[in-house]
């Protein structure tokens, strides 16, 4: 079952982007840029690709989404809310006292969050472990792991890449949100990691790169391909724009982890209006 089948992805993505901006504005903290760059990918995953059921978040046969770049909780909580895992109104509690919706992902808070994250570099390993366990259980569900491009600097990512190929793990899909920016600056300035596609291929992965991470059809096509790769792990590298959807945030390293001021917030909501 795909919970979001039939959803209008354009409208959904727009709503999710508005939630993201409202949440970060409401908390006056949080990671807006990498949430907006990943919005369309998550919309397609939850709406078209993943087998999941918000009524049964513990269903052993569910596909798992692992948010490895655990600072991008705004988009994760928003997509979960739009899919019925939590009330949309609860998004307003993001990062506030007493909330379930912490700044970085905490397993089980809310149901649908499958891992604890925030320290970059661990999600691919955690997802790999899940898939190995599922394989032992003869469960044919898939594991999707979303990573950042800056996150590729972490050595553990490459340990996991090596091990996934060594163990011939399939039903295992890594996704890189290649928005070209990390915390302080452009990724090209912080640490050159390219060519990522050739590196993963050399590690034994099937790879598709250069996919437009804001084109819903292209995203769906690439993820459907990755889901069906057998005998190997699969990676899709999406070219995205950090801050996508809000003109002054787009491709702006200043909006990695900064909240908008009142004027910026009003402008952003105007740009994201239907």
């Amino acid at each position: 079952m795909v919970a979001g089948a039939g959803t209008d992805l354009r409208a959904l993505s727009r709503r999710v982007r508005r939630h993201v901006v409202e949440m970060v504005n409401g908390a006056q903290s949080g990671h807006i840029g990498g949430s907006l760059s990943a919005t369309d990918i998550l919309a397609v995953l939850y709406g078209r690709i993943m087998r999941h059921d918000p009524q049964r978040p513990d269903w052993p046969e569910r596909d798992r989404f692992i948010m490895s770049k655990g600072h991008c909780t705004p988009v994760q909580y928003a997509i979960l809310a739009e899919n019925g895992y939590l009330p949309v109104e609860e998004l307003a509690t993001f990062r506030k006292k007493g909330t379930r919706l912490q700044g970085h992902s905490v397993l089980g808070k809310p149901a649908g969050v499958e891992n604890s994250a925030g320290a970059l570099g661990m999600g691919l390993s955690f997802g790999l472990g899940i898939r190995l366990g599922m394989r032992l259980n003869q469960t044919d569900a898939h594991v999707y792991v979303l990573m950042g491009d800056g996150e590729q600097d972490e050595g553990q990512v490459w340990e996991a890449a090596m091990a996934a190929a060594h163990h011939e793990v399939d039903h295992f899909v890594a996704i890189i949100d290649r928005n070209g920016i990390q915390n302080d600056d452009f990724t090209a300035a912080q640490m050159r990691t390219e060519p990522l596609d050739e590196k993963y291929r050399a590690f034994g992965w099937e790879v598709r790169a250069g996919i437009d991470g804001h084109d819903h059809e292209a995203i769906e096509e690439a993820l459907a391909w990755a889901r069906d790769v057998r005998g190997k792990p699969a990676l899709v590298i999406f070219d995205t724009v950090k801050g996508k959807g809000v003109s002054f945030m787009e491709n702006n390293p200043g909006f990695h982890g900064a909240a908008p001021n009142a004027e910026q917030f009003a402008l952003a909501m105007q740009e994201l209006a239907d």
Partner: peptide
């Protein structure tokens, strides 16, 4: 392999499958 960090995170993931 000789990769303890990956091993420990993967151990956590494995444990979620029962």
């Amino acid at each position: 392999g000789v990769a303890e960090q990956n091993m420990i995170s993967a151990a956590g993931g494995l444990a979620t499958t029962g």
